[in-house]
Amino acid sequence: MAVTAKRITALVNGFMLQSLFLFLMTLTAAVTSKENELYIIALLVLVLKVVLIPYFLKWIARKIKIEEGLGLYINPILSLLIVIVLSYGAYMFSRNIMGIQNRVETASFAISLSVLLTGLFIMVFRMKALAQVTGLLIMENGLFLAAVELCGNMPFFVEIAIFFDVFVFAVIIGIFVFRINELFAHIDVDKLTTLKG
């Protein structure tokens, strides 16, 4: 959904949906492992990634009044095909690493890896600065998934710190995007090349 999105709202919605699934995953993990920390983390996912950040991104998009289009380098269908190929590559890779008999680990690692790659793909092949922000957030989701599924979870404080980081990152980038728009009247990252030294 995020890959085929042509408009910023759609992309953010995709991210929101993904984060919702992430929240459900974490909640399941919390219920099965009965760790209080995981409940808190799941709550944080819900609050930050499902509600606050998407809301913020949409607010920015509205505020700077740009046209909705993301600026695609590669059309949705081709993008989808590429991402499918990437996911296949990720699956092969994780099967190589985990071994064939560990099916659950293989699958979850493959999923998180393909989420990572998808985020990166969005960052590369979409023009608008907000797409880069969302792409990075999607990558972060992939990392988080890998951490929860493979290692149980990271140490609690690390987790909290990462959440804080992500949130602050979203805010800062949002402000930057805002400023870029104010200065250049567009947020096409592509047109910032004249700034290079």
């Binding site: 990166l120 590369v124 880069q132």
Partner: peptide, 19 residues
């Protein structure tokens, strides 16, 4: 090139090659 897309693409390509 100065284009952010290219820089991210370098990383992307590196990761794919590494994989």
């Amino acid at each position: 090139s100065g284009s952010i897309h290219f820089y991210i693409a370098y990383i992307f390509a590196t990761i794919i090659v590494l994989l």
